[in-house]
Design a protein around this nucleic acid. Structure first.
Lengths: 342, 342
DNA sequence: CTGTTAGCGCGTTCAC
DNA sequence: GTGAACGCGCTAACAG
């Protein structure tokens, strides 16, 4: 397994250049260097200033953030917590995180993922952080802890009291879908939702409420109760039953559910969109690659991430008051081939 | 959009407890506290020791890593770099990162993702770090830079010279697949690989080499050259052509390709596994949920992540010599329903 | 066994 | 305009 090729000697900490070394080379004191590099004084001799800057650049100076943040009580680091270690890569979360990270980085902050052990997701990372992003349903005590130590945070994709929340506009997304299906002539529509862990999730609740509201306002048949529209274990049997009841279109709660439904249809020999239409939330892989490609509503996850970052940055820079509020990010229709006129 | 509910006053940096405060409460000097908390002295009065520990726990003490790492020249942070910002969530990478993060955390290190801007993925994060994990094909100059400043690192899923590498055993994985298909009676087998960015990737190269070697050693027909087995733009036409040529089984280079192939089959009205068998690399979502569920070879990504972490930790702790070597992680067969006897 | 002290790299006074 | 001195929280060396 080993190819005996020596590549480096034992690990010794890398010694980076400090302002003292720059000061020596420039023939000034280290505080002058600090003043120049931080632009913290407008009364500096022009040549001194330029000399220091060129030397710093030539030596490849990078400020030691450990020292800097020891001086300030800030670390310029922002951490993102998720409900579990796997939730970082769930659905739209990667896009959200990346967008937020870019916004933070532009403002001089570094976003990092804190991978708590599965059991103790509440555990604080060893590095201090100036603010936190909370993804999905993080434990309550984490929020309490953050608030107790006065660390600003923003909650993404969860509804809790008295916090700043940024969530998808699930009611709007549901309406977009239902209006599309309605305009295609569908009248018997089912909302497919997995029965398991999702129950009680604010998204599910909001979507189901919007679903019911739409059906009522459009005077659509209520032969099926909402409970009947939630899939149990046996997807094949459930689908068969729904079709027998005259359902012509399904709104799936997520891409996962949509795929399971499509597989059931394939097993039953039922055609999409010939025999029924299908739409779902979240434009995730591999919806576009399936046969047929799946129509869905897509969230602007980048906007969501940016919005969250901007809010936190405003708190950090302007020393603004934190207000409990809800920002809802709208969905957008992505038309593909899993829907057709009835 | 805003609900006017005040939740907190302006941001003020959180003041955490320090060893000085613990020392005051315990009636000892701060260095004694340090000695106790770091287990750095075995000649400490038992009651002093216990008193300090209970007080530290009660006050919720967390060491300030900024100060600690200023004192040492270590930060106890490890960075993971990826080729691009999206590569963190590609395929098995999340699992790898999580596994490595856990191993690092157990050893007192914090792993964090550095989300470089897409253009400048080489850019170093603002924080110093003790070691780095390089995912996939990171730019050469990053590796050179790390080596120049004597920072230990490990390369995952890329083949480069003179470095410590941890990669999937693609030759073994290919053989596992081909042996399975061969034992099912298949003789005309194609290797389906996307023609685009993948070209030149070490995995592709290794898999194609292993494929050719297997075909030769089993004296299988070579009516098709390797080039013929790489799909171009038009998957439908290509698949039709392959089937006409008598191909009865396909080995797809990844789950993405497998899904595209399945969609083509659906469009052509060709049955899996009735008309041909299908296998692919990487057991990723949603292979298990499709109809039929797809047989594949799965990598123990957790083992891969752990292995990488262990190697880096040995370098960091034992001041061991870094040796250029390759560790190959084997694939395992996951039998599902997309394969059948011919 | 424990307290005192110095200094890691930096930013910030306060003098000159 | 600029240098000297201090302290952020911590560890390590040296005294007692």
């Amino acid at each position: 397994m080993y190819i005996g090729c020596k590549i480096a000697c034992g690990y010794t900490p890398a010694m980076a250049v400090t302002i003292v070394e720059i000061a020596k080379r420039a023939g000034v004191s280290h505080s002058t260097v600090s003043r120049v590099l931080n632009n913290t004084s407008d009364v500096i001799a022009k040549d001194t200033r330029e000399r220091v800057l060129t030397i710093a650049k030539a030596m490849g100076y990078v400020p030691n953030l450990a020292a800097r943040s020891l001086r300030h009580a800030r670390t310029r680091m922002i951490t993102v917590f998720a409900a579990g270690p796997d939730d970082f890569w769930l659905g739209a979360n990667p896009t959200i995180i990346t967008a937020a990270a870019n916004a933070f980085r532009d403002a001089g902050y570094e976003l990092f993922c804190s991978f708590g052990g599965s059991a103790e997701s509440t555990r604080m990372p060893a590095w201090r952080f100036d603010a936190a992003v909370l993804l999905d349903r993080v434990p309550d005590d984490l929020r309490h802890q953050l608030r107790a130590q006065n660390t600003p945070y923003v909650v993404i994709n969860d509804i809790v009291d008295e916090d700043a929340l940024i969530v998808p506009d699930d009611a709007q997304g549901t309406e977009v879908m239902l209006e599309e299906l309605y305009s295609l002539g569908h009248r018997e529509i089912s909302f497919v939702s997995p029965g398991s862990w999702y129950v009680g999730h604010h998204s599910i609740v909001a979507r189901q409420a919007a679903f019911t509201a739409f059906m009522q306002s459009h005077d659509l048949p209520h032969s099926l109760s909402l409970e009947d529209r939630i899939v149990s274990e046996d997807m094949d049997g459930w689908l068969r039953g729904q079709l027998d009841l005259g359902v012509t279109a399904f709104v799936a709660n997520d891409h996962h559910t949509a795929i399971v439904l499509m597989s059931a249809a394939a097993r039953l020999g039922v055609r999409i969109p010939g025999d029924f239409s299908l739409m779902c939330f979240n434009d995730e892989f591999p919806l576009a690659l399936l046969e047929p490609p799946v129509t869905c509503v897509s969230l602007d996850s980048e906007l969501l991430g940016r919005t969250a970052a901007r809010y936190l940055l405003s708190l950090l820079s302007d020393k603004e008051q934190a207000l409990a509020h809800v920002t809802r990010i709208p969905y957008r229709l992505v038309s593909r081939n899993s829907t057709a006129a009835h």
